[in-house]
Simulated assay, not measured.
Amino acid sequence: MEASSLQQYTSNTTISRVLLSAGVLLVLWTNCIMPVPETIQWIFFAATILIAGIPHGALDHIVAKQNSNLQNHSFSNTRFYLTYVSRMALYGICWYFFPSFALLLFIVLSAFHFGETDLPLPISIHKRSAIVLQTNYGLLIVLVLLLTHAQEVLAILKIIEKENTFLLKAIFKPLHSTLIILILFALLILNFIGQYRSHRLPLQRYVNIAFRTLLILGIIICLPLPLAFAFYFGCWHSFQSLENIRQHLSNSESEHIGFTHLLQKCIPFSLLAFIGIGVLTFLATYLQTESVFLFFFFVGIAILTAPHLEVMSDMYEHLRKKEYK
């Protein structure tokens, strides 16, 4: 089973193919038929976040309980919620007082989370090596998303630009951006070569991952920022995560939880998130600035990342062990 670990944890390739095909069709439509109006882009972005982006994070309490059950540990809802909310509060305070550091931390945490989801690795690979490879992959995805949409991203980060003007302008210069992306890509290839030499997993697995990664990067680069973010986070990452959660919560091969049942479990905490988005929308309307709304929305997602990452990381560790058996 170890060799299959280089694919999706669930070995469900149907979702991957559907999402990648949809991304390619969206690129062709946007670039060859007619550009999607900006208003429609943001509506599509919001729809993907509401349908899959928020719900996949709204299951953290259920995933954490399953993690505890598999470890034969007791689970306390009160302890979980207190820990979860306290970490969100600490990270929120960090954003208020140290926005630059908080942004850097968010990028690194997101990179590892994306890499852990997209790039499952055999349990035999040392955890430190796995973290390096997955973070490298995630950083490539995140920075391609940000650096190839410099104008839109800088508009969102305008609130913290005053204390980082030189740094942001230096990073987002086309030459510097290209160099950063090429370095990360080269490091990823070297990491893959190192893992292949160490574990001798089937070469076809690496070829498949390389092709899929190039396709994802191509889609992100060719789409405007709202559609690129909607494709990767709202669709690719969120639906893959939901499928992995579904597999994790299923007790056996004959007791698989359906997506409908899974989405029903998302409702309570999804509603809370929707209320939060409503408050942000009201603030943005009151302040009459789109960039402030987007920045607040961005920070809101960032604050949820730290506790969410820990829960999901524990889940992926269980899935790796399960697939090894």
Score class of each variant (00 low, 15 high):
Gln7Tyr: 14
Gln8Asp: 10
Gln8Pro: 08
Tyr9Cys: 02
Thr13Pro: 11
Thr14Tyr: 07
Ile15Gly: 02
Arg17His: 15
Leu20Asp: 01
Val24Leu: 03
Val24Lys: 05
Val27Met: 11
Thr30Asp: 10
Asn31Met: 02
Asn31Cys: 06
Pro37Met: 05
Pro37Ile: 04
Thr39Ala: 12
Ala47Trp: 06
Thr48Asp: 08
Pro55Phe: 10
His56Asn: 03
His56Ser: 11
His61Cys: 12
Ser68Met: 07
Ser68His: 11
His73Glu: 15
Arg79Val: 14
Tyr84Leu: 00
Val85Asp: 03
Ser86Gln: 15
Arg87Ala: 10
Met88Gln: 06
Phe98Cys: 12
Leu103Asp: 04
Leu104Tyr: 06
His113Glu: 03
His113Gln: 10
Phe114Trp: 01
Pro122Trp: 00
Ile131Arg: 01
Gln134Val: 00
Gly138Met: 00
Leu139Ser: 08
Leu146Tyr: 01
Thr148Trp: 06
Ala150Val: 13
Glu152Tyr: 05
Ile156Ala: 02
Ile156Thr: 11
Ile159Arg: 09
Lys162Tyr: 04
Leu167Arg: 13
Lys169Ala: 12
His176Ile: 15
Thr178Phe: 08
Leu179Asp: 13
Ile183Cys: 12
Leu187Trp: 02
Leu188Lys: 03
Gly194Ile: 08
Arg197Tyr: 05
Gln204Gly: 13
Arg205Ala: 13
Arg205Cys: 10
Tyr206Ser: 05
Arg212Ala: 10
Thr213Met: 14
Ser238Lys: 01
Ser238Val: 01
Gln240Cys: 12
Gln247Cys: 15
Gln247Phe: 11
Ser254Glu: 14
Phe259Arg: 08
Phe259Asn: 14
Gly278His: 04
Leu283Asp: 02
Ser291Met: 04
Leu294His: 02
Phe298Gly: 02
Ala306Pro: 14
Ser313Phe: 02
Met315Thr: 03
Leu319Ile: 04
Lys322Ile: 11
Lys322Cys: 09
Glu323Ala: 10
